[in-house]
């Protein structure tokens, strides 16, 4: 295995059977994450980004299933793992944070107990020692008077506080990778940027890599080294964050950037991409974005490959923009 590649996803496909035929939520995705790297995954809701994250945790709920591809994590193929092997990885080496902090915590269990069990699931540690570690972790994510908070129930916390608890829990075992599925979307803008900063700082301290999943290119731009753009279950473009934002190659990426509020002129209406996502159980034969694409031509009837344009950049389009760059 090449030195610092932590996670390498190859041709990953996740399907959900439906009466209308299989719904392909993740469609032949290739991804790599290096140690300590922050990768952003951007896409609309329904683009398959959440299912991609769940697949990498072995948490796709039935009847969904990973039907093809490999998930190489630190040299092991996770798709071949048994449930017991998965359990040893989950929370210990790969952690996950979900979108809605109000539902991520068990409402009838004390905060402390929910954090301590995350530690005790993976190491033989006394309750007191675990409690000390939990207290430290709570301080690190900025929770005041952690001792009392330990005995509180989730409903006594604000949304931002709960998400801090969730993040602290995810980082307890100093995982190699944390998959964050829109962890700030449900929060106020101010809280959002605080948490963004905190997560970035904490992961830098421990050398934890992050896959930050979001529909918001603006958020991803703040945190990610690299960005992968997903559309209808496929990656349509990936590259370094700055390059991608400045000179997007895929028309869809360009559309996303144009629709960001920060890029709108004062007084101008926000631009949006016309149309909606295609049905995942009934994808068009060629490029899935073609029906909404301003550049679409007859050539788009054939599905383009994800082709590298440089060492750090790849795009899935027959006529990419900004060719010169």
């Amino acid at each position: 295995m090449t030195g610092n590649k932590l996670l390498s996803i190859q041709g990953l496909t996740t399907e959900f059977p439906t009466p209308q035929g299989p719904l392909v939520a993740v469609n032949g995705v290739d991804l790599e994450v290096a140690r300590g790297e922050v990768l952003g995954i951007v896409g609309e809701s329904g683009s398959g980004k959440t299912v991609l994250g769940l697949s990498a945790m072995g948490l796709v709920g039935l009847p969904g299933k990973v039907t093809a591809g490999r998930i190489l994590f630190d040299g092991q193929d996770l798709t071949r793992h048994t449930e017991a092997q998965w359990q040893a990885i989950r929370g210990k080496r790969i952690a996950m944070v979900f979108q809605d902090p109000t539902t991520s915590l068990n409402p009838v269990q004390r905060i402390g107990a929910q954090m301590i069990e995350a530690l005790q699931a993976h190491r033989d540690i006394s309750k007191d020692a675990a409690k000390r570690m939990v207290l430290e972790a709570m301080v690190r994510v900025g929770i005041n008077s952690p001792k009392e908070r330990l005995l509180a129930y989730p409903h006594q916390f604000s949304g931002g506080m709960r998400q801090r608890v969730v993040i602290a829990t995810a980082l307890l075992n100093e995982p190699d990778l944390i998959i964050a599925d829109e962890p700030t979307t449900a929060l106020d803008v101010t809280v959002q940027s605080q948490i963004l900063r905190d997560v970035r700082r904490l992961c830098q301290d421990t050398g934890t890599a992050i896959i930050w999943v979001s529909h918001d290119l603006g958020v991803v731009a703040q945190i990610a080294h690299r960005v992968a753009v997903m559309y209808a279950g496929r990656i349509v473009e990936q590259g370094m964050t700055n390059r991608l934002l400045k000179t997007p190659s895929h028309p869809y990426t360009a559309g996303l950037i144009a629709s960001m509020p920060a890029n709108a002129e004062r007084g101008e209406r926000l631009r949006s991409i016309p149309g909606g996502l295609p049905q995942l159980s009934n994808l068009p034969v060629g490029c899935a974005f073609a029906p909404r694409c301003p550049q679409a031509s007859a050539a788009c009837e054939v599905l383009p490959e994800l082709t590298s344009t440089s060492a750090e950049h790849a795009v899935r389009c027959v006529s990419p923009l900004n060719e010169a760059a």
Binding site: M57, L59, G61, Q87, A88, I89, R90, G91, K92, A95, M96, F98, T103, S104, L105, N106, P107, E117, A118, A121, H122, V166, T169, A170
Partner: peptide, 10 residues
């Protein structure tokens, strides 16, 4: 929260 509990490796 069940999904999160599983993500914790329980």
């Amino acid at each position: 929260f069940i999904r999160f509990a599983r993500a914790k490796g329980l």
